[in-house]
């Protein structure tokens, strides 16, 4: 007796085959993309690892034709520009996060969130133009300040939203409890809510810094670049991403090698931080960052 529960029709077999093919294709998409990631990271680690040495962190670029040299000035420059960006961006993002999560009316908060998210969607090269017109033009010079300002504009929307989300995870009962003791609300926010959300806020700041640290485009027209150690905050300054760009687009093998080494450092720091944060906060917040 042939089973009636086994469908041998051509139509069924075609459907089944097609389903299996498409399921296989989706699986292949996931595997393929992971393979591409492995390829890119593998290449960066391989090439970068080959040329990365202590000089890279301690020397500044050597004139063409001379052996060695590094990107020490660019690394320091990146840190300086990021520090300026942090000083400008973190207070703004922090207090905005507090205002949105603790005080703002729903409508106003919705409006601010919309503006902030739209701001996050502005291409970073346009942010560079903004900083150029506003600061470079006014001061008459490319500078670390201008670069820091540009990165701050990029950091603010990222940090403000993430800080707000971190604050919003603090249970309301904590606020209620303190309220019942008659503590003024601003002290409750600063002494209880913020410390409770502390790790989340610190993480948000790290994420924003990692994002900004990898940015190149806005620095081209603000911090410009410099082959030497910086002279001051109002002067052009070398940064790691711009230095990588200069070297990568140059015609010399030595430069390309330095670009790979620089990329390894950059990837190590940014992917390291962002990956770490995602690993720790998996599936809770910061998914969209």
């Amino acid at each position: 007796m042939t089973s009636t529960l086994v469908d041998t029709s051509l139509r069924y077999r075609r459907r089944k085959l097609f389903s299996n093919i498409m399921v296989g294709a989706a699986t292949a998409a996931a595997l393929g993309m992971m393979a591409i990631l492995a390829l890119i990271l593998g290449q960066v680690f391989l090439e970068g690892g080959r040329y990365l040495n202590l000089d890279f962190f301690t020397q500044r670029p050597q004139p063409l034709g001379q052996e060695g040299g590094g990107m020490a000035n660019a690394i320091v420059g990146s840190l300086i520009v990021l520090a300026i960006a942090a000083v400008l961006a973190l207070p703004v993002g922090f207090f905005t996060g507090i205002y949105l999560s603790e005080y703002a009316s729903d409508r106003f908060a919705g409006f601010v969130r919309f503006v902030v998210e739209t701001m996050a969607g502005v291409p970073s090269i346009v942010v560079g133009i903004f900083a150029y017109v506003l600061i470079v033009r006014q001061t008459g010079t490319f500078s670390a300040i201008a670069g820091g300002f540009a990165l701050a504009v990029i950091m603010i929307p990222i940090f403000a939203r993430a800080a707000e989300e971190a604050l919003a995870t603090v249970p309301f009962s904590l606020r209620e409890g303190a309220m019942a003791l008659g503590i003024p609300s601003w002290r409750i926010v600063l002494r209880i809510v913020v410390p409770t959300a502390g790790p989340g806020i610190v993480t948000a700041a790290m994420l924003a810094l990692a994002r900004a640290g990898g940015e190149t485009a806005p620095l081209i027209m603000t911090a410009l670049g410099n082959r030497f150690w910086h002279d001051g905050l109002m002067d052009p300054i070398a940064t790691l991403p711009v230095q990588i760009w200069t070297y990568a687009t140059g015609p010399y093998d030595e430069w390309h090698q330095q670009a790979w080494a620089g990329s390894l450092v950059l990837v190590g720091v940014t992917v390291g931080i962002i990956g770490f944060v995602r690993l720790v906060y998996r599936g809770t917040q910061f998914r969209q960052l």
Partner: peptide
């Protein structure tokens, strides 16, 4: 997959051109 979004674009550029 999300890690791909964390790689700076300058690194994509370098990998792309090389």
């Amino acid at each position: 997959i999300d890690i791909l979004a964390a790689i700076p674009s300058i690194v994509y550029g370098l990998w792309g051109m090389m």
